[in-house]
Every structure is written in structure tokens, then in C-alpha cells.
Amino acid sequence: MRSRRIALAVVTAVALTGAVGCGAVDKALDCVKTADAIATSVDRLSQAVGTASDDPTQLTEALNDIDKELGNLKDTTDNADLSKAVDDLSKGVENVRTSVENGDATPDIKPVTDAATELGKVCTS
């Protein structure tokens, strides 16, 4: 629901300004779609941490999904704020991955969720 509101806000802002070209609209929508995919992956990561004792592979799969979406987003942006948000999220994901690989079944994912929130803000501003 939140991601739909974000997407709608971006589309509305672009439509109202009329000053943005089609390429910028496509880029903004790609950013929102990717941010939505990342938000979904972060939600899965949060759920995986909660159930890690039942299925620890879910942590790795959620981290892999976030990495994939971050790679897609990083390859398509030249925005400095967005690049920083992607880098911050990548660092958070790597820290969680390292914790999991070192046997921590309940790693601290707050840096990941904070960075994902910031990425969502960048995509909608």
C-alpha cells in the first residue's frame, strides 16, 4: 500500500510540473519500482530474522534479493543522493550477511531498514 502511494505521488508530481521529460519520468518510475522491490525484500528479511531458527536460508535469500535490486538501481542512476542511499544500503546488507555467515541467526537489521527508508525518500523527492 505504501509503495503504491509513493508511486502515485511521483507520477502526480511529474504530471503537475510538466517540466520533466519522458526519460526523467521513466527514471523516476524505475526508482520507485526498485525502491518498492527493495522494501519488499527488506520486509522479507525482517520476517526471516524472526523465523531464522526454522529456516535460516530465508535470511540469505532475502539478502540476495536486496543485492540484486540494488545492483539494478545503481546501474541506472547518476543521482548523487540516490547513489549514497544505495551505498549505505549495500553496506548494511553486507554487515548483516557477515553476521549471518558468522553464525548470528538474529542479526541487527536496523541499518538496513533505515537505509531502505532513506532510499525510498530519495526516490520520491
Rank of each mutant, 00 (worst) to 15 (best):
Q47W: 07
D55M: 13
D87G: 00
D81T: 00
A116M: 04
T117H: 06
P56W: 05
D81H: 02
D78E: 11
A105I: 13
L82W: 01
A37R: 12
L119N: 00
G50H: 14
P56S: 15
K91Q: 11
L63C: 08
T17H: 09
D87F: 04
T12R: 09
A28F: 00
G23E: 13
T40M: 12
K33R: 08
A39V: 05
V49D: 07
V100K: 06
V96E: 03
G50I: 15
E69M: 07
T51C: 13
V100E: 02
A19S: 12
E69R: 07
D108T: 14
V86A: 04
C22G: 15
N95M: 11
A115G: 10
L73P: 05
L29I: 12
T34M: 05
T51G: 13
G50N: 14
T76Q: 10
A80R: 06
A15Q: 12
R2M: 11
D65I: 04
I66A: 03
M1E: 11
T17K: 11
D55E: 13
D75G: 09
A24H: 04
V86P: 06
A39I: 05
L45A: 05
A15H: 09
V49P: 11
A80P: 10
L16H: 10
G71D: 01
T76W: 06
I6V: 14
V42E: 03
V122G: 08
L29K: 03
D67S: 09
V93G: 02
N79Y: 01
